[in-house]
Write a protein that binds this DNA or RNA. Structure first.
Length: 236
DNA sequence: GCGACAG
DNA sequence: ATCTTGTCGC
């Protein structure tokens, strides 16, 4: 009844030090080798909407997962879940704030996506274990992160052309942690990084395919709309 | 020590 | 993230 099996074999951290230690422990479990899904049929987008400040604990949040058929870009399934945040917003510990609600929504899905696209970073993270990596390890599914602003890593501005498809590596501490990708000519790029079971070129190719007209991929846009809709339904 | 800091 | 008016452009 629950195709997407999500294993959470550890106690959820309550403090920042504990959360960081957990990321360090789980980091080696993320597989950034590829190539990963070259022709996925089902790609899911995930996002979370907040009520109130959106920075503290106890805030109501609504998570959404939208599965898209890459052949037609049609939405084939949607799932949502609401919850109260159990962790404050701390850069670098973002996953501990959004994962509970996202996992709950994923468990309500009937189909098993071939790839999960998260709203946030994967490897381009201070400890190389952003939300996309964490969700990948928990689900065992290929994941990648698509962020609207950079976090860890910088790219040479001159190396990023103005055309759609142009890209430049995000480098941090001498290693490539992600890529700035232009999905639309003359528009700010999105920041793509691997999460689990997919390599960077493949992840970028999937993001570009899913963003033929807008800056953000359809998966992210659909999930964003659905999460807000779910929050309205839960609030008013 | 200071600034920066995904959503 | 969320709160918000008008405005420029496809």
């Amino acid at each position: 009844m629950t195709p997407v099996r999500v294993e959470v074999p550890y106690a959820w951290p309550t403090g920042e030090a504990e959360a960081r230690a957990l990321q360090e422990r789980l980091r080696p479990l993320a597989d950034h080798r590829g190539p990963g899904p070259a022709a996925p049929r089902l790609v899911a987008g995930l996002d979370v909407a907040y009520a109130g400040d959106g920075r503290g604990t106890g805030d109501l949040v609504a998570a959404a997962v939208v599965v898209i058929d890459t052949a037609t870009h049609d939405v084939v399934e949607r799932a949502t879940a609401t919850a109260a945040t159990a962790f404050p917003y701390v850069p670098g510990l973002f996953a501990f704030r959004e994962l509970p609600a996202l996992v709950a929504a994923l468990r309500r899905l009937e189909a098993v996506p071939d790839l999960l696209l998260c709203d946030g970073h994967g490897r381009s993270h201070p400890r190389r274990f952003g939300l996309a990596c964490h969700l990948g390890v928990l689900t065992g599914l290929p994941t990648a992160g698509v962020a609207k602003t950079p976090f860890t890593g910088r790219h040479d501005p001159a190396a990023l052309g103005p055309d759609r498809g142009a890209h430049a590596d995000l480098v941090d501490g001498g290693e490539v942690v992600g890529r700035a990708l232009r999905t639309r000519a003359g528009v700010k790029p999105v920041y793509v990084s691997t999460g689990h079971l997919v390599d960077l070129p493949t992840a970028c190719a999937r993001v570009l395919e899913l963003a033929p007209r807008h800056r953000l991929p359809e998966t992210t846009r659909q999930a964003d709309h659905l999460s807000r809709e779910a929050l309205r339904a839960a609030t008013g």
